[in-house]
């Protein structure tokens, strides 16, 4: 196995092209090293992508840009992601209560894993785009299209994730995140993220209700029924309860960790909790 640590993108793309499916880009290495015994026989080249200048958080007219190798703790500490319209990102990180993993794991690594991770659920609720680069150029794809199935993303050989972009949400928008896990070291059994926008009269003009980690499809899914229950309505506690109950349209997986029935119940409870937070935050123009 060869190891490379390129310092510019063209060098990285040339290596990804040279090795094709036999190369693996590595960022925080927290997933790769945990699976090294399975992976290292299959891989010919490990390409460390941490020296490519992809660690940054910045805001412009389009919204928020987060470089792929930005660590979860950098997101937790940064003013732009800790509070204000994108504060849900720090809240999501906070729910992974292992400081040492947060110091290493990156947002690019999180989005590439279509499985039991938290950030993709939140990013789907915020209509994020994934910016993908390769020697043929740069393309972008919505978070909704980026995950194809369990542990399967839309990257082609030779491509890597460069950036995650979140559009600026309208004023009076709030977000909420909630999660169930056994211990700090456990992966999420259920995670949910919600986003609500209100007009001046308090009517819900936009809503996202997303469940992850628990789904039968293995990737985060929106609950169309829960969103429809909220849209164009004046939100109150009864409506939040009704919207959470409507989330039964998300089919949950039945496996050795937790049964589908319990997962569905936890999805409902998590959504109710996350919607309450989103609603409170939308009324204050802050996210939590």
């Amino acid at each position: 196995m060869e190891y490379y640590s390129p310092t510019d993108l063209n060098e990285a793309y040339a290596l990804l092209d040279k090795y094709g499916e036999d190369a693996i880009p590595i960022a925080g290495s927290t997933f790769y090293m945990g699976h090294r015994e399975e992976l290292f026989d299959e891989v010919e080249a490990v390409i460390n992508i941490k020296q490519l200048g992809l660690s940054y958080i910045r805001q412009d007219g389009d919204g928020l840009h987060i470089g792929a190798t930005t660590t979860l703790n950098e997101i937790f500490a940064h003013g732009l992601t800790r509070k204000g319209p994108f504060g849900i990102l720090a809240t999501t990180v906070q729910e992974l209560n292992i400081n040492e993993v947060r110091n290493m794991a990156t947002i690019g690594g999180e989005v590439c894993i279509a499985g039991e991770v938290d950030m993709p659920t939140t990013l789907l609720a915020y209509d994020a785009d994934i910016v993908i680069g390769g020697s043929k150029g740069v393309r972008r794809m919505s978070m909704a299209d980026f995950h194809i199935g369990y542990l399967n993303n839309a990257l082609e050989p030779g491509e890597m994730v460069l950036e995650v972009q979140l559009p600026q949400p309208p004023a009076n928008t709030g977000g909420g995140f909630a999660k169930f896990e056994r211990t700090a070291a456990d992966l999420p059994i259920v995670n949910v993220a919600t986003r609500i926008s209100l007009d001046d009269a308090g009517v819900c003009t936009d809503a996202r209700v997303v469940a992850g980690a628990a789904t039968l499809s293995g990737i985060p899914e929106r609950s169309g029924a829960a969103e429809a229950a909220l849209l164009n309505q004046v939100i109150d506690a009864a409506l939040i309860e009704a919207a959470a109950a409507a989330s039964a349209d998300v089919a949950c997986i039945n496996d050795f960790r937790v049964s589908a029935e319990i997962r569905s119940l936890w999805v409902k409870c998590g959504i109710e909790d996350a919607l309450k937070r989103a609603f409170a935050a939308a009324r204050q123009g802050e996210q939590s």
């Binding site: 190891y3 640590s5 590595i26 925080g28 290495s29 927290t30 090293m33 945990g34 490990v46 460390n48 941490k50 703790n73 400081n99 040492e100 993993v101 110091n103 290493m104």
Partner: peptide
């Protein structure tokens, strides 16, 4: 396996030595 890497605690089992 926790140690400090550039001042931050990390799990050294999840870090490639070469990195």
């Amino acid at each position: 396996c926790t140690l400090l890497l550039d001042g931050k605690p990390v799990f050294s089992c999840l870090r490639m030595a070469i990195d």
